[in-house]
Design a protein around this nucleic acid. Structure first.
Length: 180
DNA sequence: TTGGCGATTGGCT
DNA sequence: GCCAATCGCCAAT
């Protein structure tokens, strides 16, 4: 689960899609070493790396190695379960990412997910494994079968099978062919 | 349902 | 300047 605590209430859901950006990965923001913009990717595992791209979208990684090593997991989609009405309002209020009105599109894709959950620069660097405005947890439900594919939208190391998704979930992004 | 394309901001070289 | 871990629109199937 990824959970966000907002003034209006809690929002979030089950993580159904991720991508790995591993050590020595040419597609990773951390590949060329630490800069002011990617330093949170070098925090100890379990911290947020929030960044802005394409002039329109915030996205979030979870740092995944020990302090000083740059690597992370991109959270690409959630199945909304908590505070759906609040997330719908957040998407509707975001001009850059217009919401189709369908629940399955509410947090389907890394930019949409951050828009729905109001994840932005202010959360960069926080510890996701303790109480706070954004944290990781579990609802205790069994995880479904996990599929594996190429990552989406990158040009470097494009063929590495580092994308992971819940097979059969309609809350997963990408084309049908990617989600077999 | 699928694939191609342009908008638009910030960080880095 | 350059370009990007996206999105939504449009046309074609």
């Amino acid at each position: 689960m990824l959970v966000r605590e907002l003034p209006d209430g809690m929002v979030g859901g089950r993580i159904v899609e991720t991508e790995a950006y591993i050590i020595g990965d040419p597609a990773s923001h951390a590949y060329r070493g630490m800069t002011p913009g990617n330093r949170s990717m070098f925090l100890d595992r379990g911290h947020a790396h929030v960044y802005f791209t394409y002039g329109s979208s915030w996205m979030m990684n979870v740092s995944s190695e020990k302090a000083g090593v740059g690597a992370g997991i991109l959270i690409r989609a959630i199945e909304p379960t908590i505070g759906i009405a609040i997330m719908e309002r957040n998407r509707a209020a975001t001009e850059q990412t217009r919401w189709s009105g369908r629940l399955q599109d509410l947090a389907r894709g890394p930019g949409r997910l951050c828009a729905a959950m109001q994840i932005d620069r202010r959360l960069d660097g926080i510890d996701l494994c303790k109480e706070g405005p954004l944290w990781l947890g579990s609802d205790g439900r069994a995880v479904g079968e996990i599929g594996q594919s190429k990552r989406i939208g990158i040009s470097q190391a494009a063929d590495s099978l580092l994308r992971f998704y819940v097979r059969g979930s309609r809350f997963v992004s990408g084309t049908r062919a990617l989600n077999i």
